[in-house]
């Protein structure tokens, strides 16, 4: 404890830099990716291929006035964007990027990340309520019902993984999947059984859909549906208040991708038994993030009712069946 105190602090500084760069450049990737999918170029003017565009956007946001409109709940209005940012940043402290690249080894890190994620939901709720605006309030209500609905299949799927590994420690979960993709939890044909390997891809898809929904990304961005709710809970925010919400969204995406990588894709393990390392981890999370961007620019936004039906009628039954089957397979094989 005595000397270890500096380790989390130094890591925290590192994570803040990582988070800032990611939040800025995922925005750039998003715009570039959207451009390519629509056969445009995306930002081109500021810097080579628009590479300095995030910097310009950040400067612009920071130099604007932090406006607090009349009629808002002044304290909660200011707290909400901070709440959107903090959980994502804190979750990074327990994510093992490689064998010993981890700020703080926590025994229950899976649980910790989900506990923190639930604070993020609070941010949308408070932001929407405190704005004192009908659209923001609708957005808050939508986002809460959506998050509650999608948290259930997500947690049930996580329980499946925890049962397979027998641990809630992210590092142990990743360490249990080393040695090639046939050991990964997405297709654990070597580490568990063929029967298990057949149902795990379904779990992976459920978890992926849920994590997209939990981060309020399209096609699940009911909370900030521009065409109907302006920007939902972010409507009344300007300058860095809005900036923090955006950064929080991108950071949540990163944390979600890290979680999927660790839970299903073997963490830092190289496919085909290649030697593992942090680079494999980064490759995996950025592939996942690209998929999330790709999904966003492919599907249109659905209705909130259909969204909830997807969770309650399809994802929850499927994840429960998966849980039961996994329990049975662990006993049988």
């Amino acid at each position: 404890m005595d000397t270890n105190i500096w380790r989390p602090i130094l890591y925290l500084i590192g994570f803040m830099a990582f988070a800032g760069i990611n939040a800025a450049y995922l925005g750039w990737c998003e715009r570039k990716g959207a451009g390519r999918i629509q056969r445009r170029t995306g930002p081109m003017e500021v810097g080579f291929q628009g590479l300095l565009q995030p910097l310009a956007d950040g400067l612009k946001l920071m130099s604007k006035q932090l406006l607090v409109p009349d009629g808002v709940d002044s304290i909660l209005f200011r707290v909400a964007p901070i709440l959107a940012m903090i959980p994502a940043l804190t979750s990074m402290a327990v994510i093992p990027f490689a064998g010993n690249v981890q700020a703080r080894a926590v025994e229950l890190s899976v649980l910790l990340i989900f506990a923190l994620a639930s604070i993020g939901m609070m941010a949308v709720l408070l932001g929407g309520w405190a704005s004192g605006n009908k659209y923001s309030l609708i957005s808050a209500a939508r986002s809460v019902s959506q998050n509650l609905a999608y948290e259930i299949p997500m947690l049930v799927t996580v329980i499946t993984i925890v049962m397979l590994t027998g641990s809630m420690n992210l590092e142990e979960i990743a360490a249990a999947q080393q040695g090639g993709f046939w050991n990964w939890n997405i297709f654990p044909v070597a580490s568990h059984s063929l029967a298990q390997a057949i149902i795990m891809p379904v779990s992976f898809i459920i978890f992926f859909i849920c994590s997209v929904a939990e981060t309020n990304r399209a096609p699940f961005d009911m909370a900030e549906a521009e065409s109907e709710l302006i920007a939902g809970h972010m409507t009344e925010y300007g300058s860095m208040g809005f900036g923090l919400f955006m950064m929080g969204e991108y950071l949540n995406m990163v944390v979600g991708a890290c979680l999927i990588t660790i839970l299903f894709l073997g963490g830092w393990d190289g496919p085909l038994g290649l030697s593992g390392g942090i680079w494999w981890f980064l490759v995996k999370i950025y592939l996942l993030l690209f998929t999330v961007i790709w999904v966003r620019w492919t599907y249109p936004r659905t209705q909130i009712y259909k969204l909830l039906n997807l969770s309650w009628k399809i994802l929850i039954p499927f994840s429960l069946v998966n849980l039961l089957l996994t329990a049975a397979f662990i006993k049988v094989f």
Partner: peptide, 16 residues
């Protein structure tokens, strides 16, 4: 952790 997950994440939000 359960306190965070259930009470902060679920109960408070359900009340809200």
């Amino acid at each position: 952790m359960m306190q965070m997950l259930i009470y902060v994440g679920a109960v408070s939000i359900l009340i809200a």
